[in-house]
Amino acid sequence: MAVYRLKTPISEEEIRKLTVNDIIYINGALVTARDAAHKRALEFHRKGKKLPLNLEGLAIFHCGPIVKKIRDEWILVAAGPTTSARMDLYEADFIKNFKARVIVGKGGMGGKTTEGMKKTGAVYGAFTGGAAVLAARAVKKVKKVYWLDLGMPEALWILEVENFGPVIVAIDSYGKNLFEDNQKKVMKNLKTL
């Protein structure tokens, strides 16, 4: 259970050092993306269109934030993680095509994403569900927003973060999946209850 402070852009080499149960703190650029943003990004890729920013080495946050515009500046009000399972459909292709290295959310992801992370070199990290204040405190600035036409929660918010965490590595780049392993343990425990 080692602790790592990662700075974006994060390299594949740094990712390969991480194993499940490690704790990471993210510094640099954290980009929010939910279902709609994942879907559109993959459509862009299919059509050969460029994304509005280069995601290589960045961290993605499954989060629909509450953001307020005060004069010309966006202020983040709350930013807790949303359920990651919904992005299972897209994540493996997403990391393969755009090389984002850390995906943060809650509740874990499935086999297809785990396989994708092993191939591409990425990890999934769990951020404590509901801990919106803790998350928002680590955000120093809302740098930019793209795809606001998808709606506030679905847009790509580019957040500048400092020591964003604790994020628990729950899927590493070697095919270990903490949530699935724990689920198996639970099923085993169930038999003895």
């Binding site: 629909g64 934030p65 509450i66 009000v77 709350a78 930013a79 807790g80 404590t128 509901g130 801990a131 919106a132 204040v133 803790l134 405190r137 604790p166």
Partner: peptide
């Protein structure tokens, strides 16, 4: 620990402890 810290911060700054 993260939950307890989050709860502390919410109380201190009088903001909702969870976005939902």
């Amino acid at each position: 620990k993260a939950i307890l810290e989050n709860v502390e911060l919410a109380k201190k700054y009088k903001i909702p402890m969870c976005q939902d």
